[in-house]
Write a protein that binds this DNA or RNA. Structure first.
Length: 317
DNA sequence: AAGAGACACAACCGCCTAATT
DNA sequence: AAATTAGGCGGTTGTGTCTCT
């Protein structure tokens, strides 16, 4: 047995919201709140909208103190830096930018920032909001040069290494991410797992998988990498087993707490001894196609993002 | 002036996880 | 325990507007 259906799909209105609908939704929520139940909300107000749609409209447009457009220099910087660090986790990025919604940031990234970083501006065109191409922007100076090593039209840094097809674009020599991020970013720790409370398995697992991370457990004699040796021979882009491997990673994750407490490793280069495991560095070297120094720096940056664990350590390799 | 293409962004879609029955 | 939905999230699409030719 499950719950009752959320709404009558055939009877809900779709498409742009009218000012009347906006006014109804806004005034009701301001007076009564959502009541923790978006599905019931449209019926109470008399809107022919799906609860999901109401939620989206409120969060992205009607909510008080929402800012639209005119991203500042600092906001640009933060978005770029966080994107490099954690990829397209728009909700986390939005949490660092008061008044900005994940949808807004996502749109801004997809339509402007990414192109800017890729150096893909149409010659002579200035964007409609009059921001134009400002060659003096600090963020551009700092990031663009390095980004062009890391990105092509067909890939983005957040996915580098996650797709066998995309991986072929990863250069043999690239600038370390740490040099692109000359100043360490400050994150609100409540949004990211902390090493002492490393139990957000879902979040971390997603990131690791996205980055091409391998879960490796010395007690597991049937580690996925053993079953799919192609992952280490550089032929994964042509081997159908690679896709199965990716699915396998997602299907049977090893809990992060276990990885950190036992003799296990995961291939962002960090092990239970707060250093880089040999397997980790090799995994990253392969997955990212970088040399040892670059992998070490990148792993350190990622470790910093996830609460400061790890960092370069000597003698592990 | 008109058509084509580019752009911006609101809204939808589909997936995942947690909660509920 | 299994089935099903709600809520949340990231990816994608639809469409109105702007710019160029």
């Amino acid at each position: 047995m499950g719950r009752a259906p959320c709404c009558d799909k055939a009877n809900v209105k779709k498409g742009p919201w009218s000012p009347e609908e906006d006014a109804k939704l806004k005034s009701y929520i301001l007076k009564h709140g959502t009541g923790g139940n978006w599905i019931a909300l449209p019926q109470k107000i008399g809107l022919r909208r799906c609860g999901k749609s109401c939620r989206l409209r409120w969060l992205n447009y009607l909510r008080p103190n929402i800012k639209h457009g005119d991203f500042s220099e600092e906001e640009d910087n933060l978005i770029c830096s966080m994107y490099i660090s954690i990829g397209s986790r728009w909700s986390i990025i939005a949490a660092q930018l008061p008044g900005r919604t994940d949808n807004d940031i996502k749109n801004y990234w997809n339509t402007k920032l990414k192109k800017k970083l890729l150096g893909d501006q149409k010659k002579g065109r200035v964007d409609k909001r009059g921001r134009g191409n400002n060659p003096n922007r600090e963020m551009e100076k700092r990031v663009v040069g390095g980004f062009n090593y890391l990105m092509t039209d067909n890939m983005d840094i957040g996915n580098c290494g996650s797709s066998s097809q995309r991986m072929s674009y990863c250069p043999a020599m690239a600038l370390p991410m740490s040099t692109l991020l000359q100043q360490p970013m400050q994150y609100n720790n409540h949004e990211l797992p902390h090493p002492s409370n490393f139990d957000d398995h879902t979040l971390i697992r997603k990131l690791l998988i996205k980055l091409g991370g391998r879960f490796y457990d010395e007690n597991d004699h049937h580690a996925v990498s053993d079953r799919f040796p192609d992952i280490t021979d550089g032929s994964s882009s042509r081997n159908p087993g690679h896709e199965q491997l990716v699915n396998d990673r997602a299907a049977s994750p090893i809990p992060m707490s276990h990885l950190l407490q036992s003799d296990s490793h995961f291939t962002l280069g960090l092990n239970a001894n707060n250093g880089y495991s040999k397997e980790g560095l090799e995994g990253l070297e392969f997955l990212l196609g970088y040399d040892e120094t670059i992998v070490r720096d990148s792993a350190g940056l990622l470790a910093g993002v996830y609460g400061g664990r790890g960092g370069p350590s000597d003698g592990t390799r």
